[in-house]
Amino acid sequence: MSMRNFVLPIFCVASGGMAFAQTDSAARTVADLPAEIEETGERAPSPPPLSSADDGAPVDLATNQYGIGSPASEEQIAQIDIDVMPDGRGLPEGRGTYAEGETLYADRCLACHGENLEGVAELGAPKLVGGRDSLASDQPVKTVESYWPYASTLFDYVHRAMPMDSPGSLTPDEVYALSAYILGQSGITSDDADAVLNAESFAQVTMPNADGFVEDPRGRGQTE
C-alpha cells in the first residue's frame, strides 16, 4: 500500500469546511457551471476562496501573518515526506536481501528492464548496470552502476515512481531488496543471496561515480 493512497481521503476530510466542498461524500468529477443570479440572469462570480485558517486568525502584515493557511502537523507531513537523501536521511525502517530482490525483480521489473538489467530501448526502460569507465569514451553508457552518484537516489526513485504500471506500490522492504539486487548485480554491494540492505547499511554504500559531478564552472556572462 503506497503512502500516497491514503493521503487523498484525509485531504477530503480536511477540506470539508471549504467554500466549494461538496456536502455529500462522493468526490466530484467536474465543476458545475456558475450559478445564475435570479434577478438579472447573470452568472454569479466565484465566491472569495476560504482560507483553511481558523476564524479570527491574527493578521499582521509586518510579521507575515495573513490569517491564511494552517500549521502542518507531523502526521500530515509524514504521510507524504518520502524523500531519501545521500546521507541516509529519510530512509525508512525495513530490510531486504539480494535473493528477495532477484525474485521481486523478475516479477515487477524484468518486463521493462530486461532479464539481465540491460534495459529495453523500445519500452523506454534504461539499462541499469554496466558501463563503468565508459563515461569519458565516445560511447558513454549511463547506468545506475556507472553514472548515478548516490545510492539514495536509487531507493528514492524506485520507491516513489516505480514500477511504471503501478508507481509507488513497493514497500520499503521490497525497495531494500530490489536495491540489494541491482547494487549486487552492479558489483557495488555483495551478490550473496542473503546479503542484506537496511537503513544503516544503505547509507554506507559508495557509488563508483560519487565524485563524477562538478558544479558548472562558468562565470556570469561567460559562454564556455
Partner: peptide, 12 residues
C-alpha cells in the same frame, strides 16, 4: 511547517 489549500494560496 505550513499547509495551504488552493483557497489559501488564492487569498495571499
Amino acid at each position: 511547517p505550513l499547509r495551504f489549500t488552493m483557497g489559501d494560496l488564492k487569498r495571499l
